[in-house]
């Protein structure tokens, strides 16, 4: 008995040493070919299993085929994404550490209470991927026929109408704050996300619900909710019959979650170029677009330059709405 155990132990130790060595050898051998020649880490600053995470994992799988190297998703959670982005900022800008990027990054450093020491210059923008547009919906028996009627009522009764937003400083909340600045005061009720917003709306606990167009499309199709407006410059393909907010009221009110990919600041231009092409190819693949559509998400490609300009504009818009 004792002999067997010691034999097993020796074998295990041997195994460990062998695995250790082989890893080491593998690394050395591949050091001098072109990018990418080793596994890429994709930081997802949110918990495994959420919709952001699943979207990123779908992309990671395709990126692997495109680049011929493993893409390892690493969930680094904390401080509404900030812990993950900090980890990214500390990584080498060699293109082997990338991260999922959301507009929450901008909100986070704009908020003076947070005392963040990074901004848009601390990351290299690669591409925009997901475009998740917000829609406002009401119960079918709501007195508001469209966004114009709603705004008229809000103007006459400031602070009376409740709107379910999926949390503080989400795009849903920021849109309500932007309207506030224009003199239309609504009362935001912060839910902890999609599920609760939906429950509150269906149960009639709030007057209006602000949700992703792709998330609310089924309830609208089935007549459980009625969509008032889409908060974008053009109609959403998930709700083709629903007018934009501007169409209806003349006020340009936009709210969307845009999710893209970034690397650490001053990334190697060759790697940026390579990733841009790879991402572009993935996003133009109709199969990928269909996958994302099934999840209720639109794909909108922006290259590195366009993405950067878009984020700068977003920073200015948020500053205005939030008053920071």
């Amino acid at each position: 008995m004792r002999k067997t155990i010691s034999l097993v132990l020796v074998l295990l130790m041997l195994g460990v040493i062998l695995v250790g060595c082989s890893n080491f050898a593998g690394k050395k051998q591949a050091a001098d070919s072109t990018y990418p020649n080793k596994p890429i880490t994709l930081i997802v600053p949110y918990s495994a299993g959420g919709s952001s995470d699943i979207g990123a994992r779908l992309v990671a799988k395709r990126l692997e085929q495109e680049l011929g190297q493993p893409v390892v998703v690493e969930n680094v959670v904390g401080a509404a994404g900030w812990v993950g982005w900090q980890k990214l900022a500390k990584a080498k800008p060699d293109g082997y550490t990338l991260s999922l990027f959301t507009l929450a990054y901008i909100t986070s450093y704009l908020n003076p209470d947070n005392k963040r020491d990074m901004n848009l210059d601390n990351v290299t923008q690669l591409v925009n991927h997901v475009w998740d547009v917000t829609a406002w919906a009401v119960k079918p028996d709501s007195p508001f026929k469209d966004a114009r009627e709603l705004l008229a009522y809000v103007k006459a009764n400031p602070g009376k109408v409740t709107v379910a937003t999926s949390g503080v400083y989400t795009q849903h909340h920021i849109a309500v704050l932007a309207l506030d600045k224009l003199g239309y005061k609504m009362k935001p009720v912060h839910t902890n996300g999609l599920a609760e917003s939906l429950t509150m709306a269906l149960g009639g606990h709030v007057d209006v619900v602000s949700m992703g167009a792709g998330d609310v499309r089924n309830q609208v199709k089935e007549g459980a909710l009625r969509a008032l407006a889409v908060l974008d410059t053009k109609r959403s393909r998930f709700l083709p019959d629903v007018p934009t907010f501007a169409e209806n009221t003349g006020i340009n009110l936009n709210a969307y979650a845009a999710r893209g990919y970034v690397g650490p600041a001053n990334m190697d231009p060759a790697a940026v170029k390579r990733l841009e092409t790879a991402f572009k190819k993935i996003m133009e693949d109709p199969q990928h677009v269909a996958e994302m559509e099934a999840m209720g998400l639109d794909v909108r490609y922006m290259d590195s330059k366009a993405y950067k300009a878009f984020l700068k504009q977003e920073e200015a818009d948020q500053k205005k709405a939030l008053g920071w």
């Binding site: 010691s6 097993v8 132990l9 020796v10 295990l12 130790m13 195994g15 460990v16």
Partner: peptide
């Protein structure tokens, strides 16, 4: 030592 290495490896 043996057990530590084995458990860690597994």
């Amino acid at each position: 030592l043996g057990m530590s290495i084995a458990v860690t490896a597994i």
